[in-house]
Design a binder for these strands. Structure first.
Lengths: 217, 217
DNA sequence: CGTTTTCTTGAGATGTGTCAATCCTCGTGG
DNA sequence: CCACGAGGATTGACACATCTCAAGAAAACG
């Protein structure tokens, strides 16, 4: 662990900046310290799909591969903690614990990706939006202020377009469904980004997910 | 590795059989020896999405979790090689090499899942079908018989319904798009399952993917 | 303030889903 | 050997959710 300390260095990026282009040579791996970034894939004609959402503590880069497979884009001001790849890989060979931790994180990501696949393949636009709001709300719930009786308040860290790329929708559909949820009282909006969920259970009902427990473990 | 040999045992299943139900207690991990199985998720109202396709050599089960997160279904007669979970986990702690291999496999699965997310979120029905055919064709190409000049022949290991669950479509749409590809000469059919691709490049054009190299590494 | 970006809303087009009828293939039992 | 039935597959007609194109409104920013 001390060795890791020695070979790390920090890099900062502005919101909106593309940090890594798919196909780029990657000579480092990194971990998000602060801010939010996205992984996305783009087709020749411009259609793009987000395939990963990187929050603080998430890992970027694949040991044993030297070109990036996805675009990495900062959606907020971002600080990353980087390690040169070569030394990191050598460290992994020597200290199994690092690899074990990485395996755990990768398995979690795989589970998240599979949940996401269900969303992309089978959910309606309204369920998709509700699911995304629920994900963000749940993550922010711990940090957030007003957490009385199912009430959750947070700021959307994504633009409508980024949400659309996350959900496999157009930004117009995202906008319409958010308006619909607002009209139906599932959420309240101040400005375009500040969201209040008066009743978290109500929002969960809209996601289409199994309600009876069992989401984790 | 010899230790692994000692604690393994084999199990066989019939086509169509559900091997594991989501939520089941899992006291083993396993690896596919022969046949094909699927991982899928089902919503309360019956909508289902396949989230994994298990081919020979693929791994099932998550070290460090004791309930299954997905249904596992045999789509062909299936043979699996199982290891009791507890001993396997202990082995993993002692021999880092096993964990490293597992990490590699998990990272590959994650990449596949992300490719799949692009398909689910952004591709048209025709592109989805073409992509699936291309995936199967490429995998069988090595084994298959007629591999002259871009010509590939194979059997579909999935029903129309399973294909629909893979692609996030209805089986009617799958059927229609297959008929369309046949009418346009992209594929030929004998019976419902036996497919001939006269020109693999032509099929690749239909997938919407980047043609110029770069799919692997 | 202008300017630009982001977001909202409308009207119409279209791809995919839904419902329903029919067909094909194959295995089974009369 | 044939009739029957069951599961899988195809095809049609229509409905509807989402996309496309377009105009404005509302914030954000210099």
């Amino acid at each position: 662990m001390d060795e890791l300390e020695e070979m790390k260095y920090y890099r900062s990026f502005e919101a909106g900046q593309t940090i890594i282009w798919s196909g780029d040579k990657m000579d480092f791996v990194a971990s998000v310290v602060e801010g939010i970034a996205t992984l996305s894939q783009t087709m020749e004609d411009g259609r793009t799909q987000m395939v990963g959402l990187l929050l603080p503590s998430d890992f970027v880069g694949r040991p044993g591969r030297d070109t990036a497979a996805y675009d990495v884009i900062a959606t907020t001001p971002l600080v990353m903690c980087c390690f040169r790849k070569k030394p990191f890989e050598e460290l992994m060979l020597r200290t199994p614990h690092v690899g074990q931790r990485l395996l755990e994180m990768t398995l979690d990501e795989l589970d998240a990706a599979r949940e996401w696949m269900l969303l992309l393949g089978r959910k309606t636009a309204r369920e998709k939006i509700s699911s995304l709001l629920a994900i963000i709300a749940r993550r922010d719930a711990s940090i957030s202020i007003g957490t009385e009786a199912g009430r959750v308040v947070f700021d959307l860290p994504l633009t409508r377009e980024a949400m659309a790329d996350y959900l496999g929708l157009t930004l117009e559909t995202v906008s319409r469904q958010i308006s619909a949820l607002k009209k139906d009282g599932v959420i309240q909006l101040e400005g375009k980004r500040h969201v209040t969920v008066p009743d978290m259970d109500r929002l969960m009902d809209e996601t289409g997910d199994d309600t009876d427990g069992g989401i984790f473990v």
